[in-house]
């Protein structure tokens, strides 16, 4: 049962023993220092009001930097098989999909309510409605155009 994957890289000694890849101590210490500094910055930034979305973006950027540092050095992704990085990254990608697609719904609800109000569906006689409502249609077209723009920024 050999390591049938010639593209793998990382440590390769095909002997019976595993030889560890020991990270030098200074790297760990520098990582730690970075984390502490970034924590101080992010707490400090929260006292300054830069506008809520800027504050949020800043907090997320700092958190992501910290996360990358932890993953790269404490969790050894920097020196490990690239595949492990891909595996971990996939979780972020799919989490992104989850959040983004759910937001297509939650931040765009009721976008067409204005249109619907102007052209209520006539369930008992759906086709008669279409001819009876020409006067309502132009008004309806004007209102939601703005609504769509306002609501469609997810």
């Amino acid at each position: 049962m050999a390591h049938a994957d010639p593209h793998d890289h990382g440590h390769h000694s095909h002997g019976p023993d595993h030889v560890p890849h020991v990270t030098p101590l200074p790297i760990y210490l520098k990582t730690f220092a970075t984390l502490v500094v970034l924590t101080v910055i992010t707490v400090g930034a929260s006292y300054i009001n830069l506008g809520t979305s800027v504050n949020l973006a800043l907090a997320l950027i700092i958190a992501t930097t910290k996360a990358c540092v932890v993953a790269a050095f404490f969790m050894h992704l920097a020196s490990d098989h690239k595949f492990h990085t891909a595996v971990f990254a996939s979780s972020i990608v799919f989490l992104g999909i989850f959040v983004a697609f759910t937001m297509f719904d939650t931040s765009a609800r009721g976008q067409f309510d204005a249109q619907k109000k102007n052209r209520p569906a006539q369930m008992t006689d759906p086709f008669a409605k279409a001819t009876a409502a020409p006067s309502a249609a132009p008004a309806a077209a004007a209102a939601p155009a703005g609504a769509t723009k306002a609501g469609a920024k997810p």
Binding site: S13, G15, H18, D80, H81, H84, F88, S90, F98
Partner: peptide, 22 residues
């Protein structure tokens, strides 16, 4: 080999961490 066993364990943990993230 010990290496394969080691790598297998590590890949397993990483996959587990993926489930934690989600």
């Amino acid at each position: 080999s010990a290496d394969t066993q080691f790598d297998a364990g590590r890949l397993g943990i990483w996959l587990f961490l993926v489930t934690e993230v989600l």
